Amino acid sequence: MSTFSDALTRLGSAQKSAKGAPAYSRFVNRKLGRVLAAASYVVGLTPNQVTGISACFTFAGIALIALVSPAPWLGLVVCLALVIGYAFDAADGQLARLRGGGSKSGEYLDHMVDALKVSALHSAVAISFYRFFDLDHAAYLLLPVAFTVVAAVLFFGMILKDLLARAHRAAAGVPAPPPEAPSTLRALLVIPTDYGFLCVAFLLFGFKDVFLPLYALFFAGNLLFLLAASVKWFREVGALDATPAQSGSQRVNA
């Protein structure tokens, strides 16, 4: 049985590419996830069990947003719950790679939990705004509703783009491109889209006059990124059509 330090060392060479990852996810969350993955490996947890732990922390934090009146202590508790949940979310994939590779069912479960949380989080904010925030205009309630739509579409777009690319490479017999070197500048520029920084922003949830404009800035950043990324992704997917898939006999004869 590997020790914690052995597992941690092995995980250092079992990381996926950091290309495109925003700053918190790349520099903080993956490192936290690595520690949790090593600990989970030592105690014998499976990746699906780690996904379940992540969901418990994440949805506990989301429930508190919707059910409890904002206060400084609540912001701290919600932030910790979301941050820990996100760290375990990074740990399940790392644990799978440490164990020799993940499963299709595990990937499905992980993506389903992620899809649920990105919509549930902003839905909980909408409930909190309605119940506890003394909003000058009811139109502010549209902000988390719009954020729910943007977050869901952004998540689906990223997943679908990668899925189509992988399916096309498999059909065309084309190997995956080598990972590109990650850009620190880009990681900093896309901070508004970073789910990890959004988790940390809930530290200010108890300060309504500060949290509301900060939340609006996160929404604006995600909306602008979605508009730009959608065009880029459409072109990338369209470029796949220029490389026709090979038939089974063609791949055998190649």
Rank of each mutant, 00 (worst) to 15 (best):
G106H: 04
E107C: 09
Y108A: 15
D110T: 13
M112W: 10
L116Q: 14
H122P: 05
S123P: 01
S123W: 09
A126S: 06
S128G: 04
Y130C: 10
Y130P: 00
R131I: 12
F132H: 10
F132M: 10
F133K: 09
L135A: 06
D136K: 13
A139Y: 10
P144W: 02
V145K: 10
V145C: 02
F147W: 14
F147C: 07
V149M: 08
A152N: 06
V153W: 01
L154S: 15
L154C: 05
F155K: 12
F155Q: 07
G157I: 02
G157V: 01
L163R: 14
L164A: 07
R166W: 03
A167V: 07
H168V: 05
A170T: 05
A171K: 04
A171I: 01
G173S: 01
V174I: 14
A181T: 15
P182G: 10
P182D: 02
S183E: 06
T184I: 13
A187R: 00
A187S: 15
L189D: 08
V190I: 12
V190N: 01
I191A: 12
D194E: 10
G196E: 06
F197E: 11
L198G: 07
C199K: 01
F202T: 09
F202C: 08
G206E: 09
G206M: 09
F207V: 14
K208N: 10
V210H: 04
P213I: 06
Y215G: 03
A216K: 10
L217K: 14
F218G: 02
G221P: 03
L226D: 09
V231M: 00
K232I: 08
R235V: 10
V237R: 02
A239W: 00
A239E: 13
A239C: 00
L240H: 01
D241P: 00
P244W: 00
P244M: 06
G248M: 01
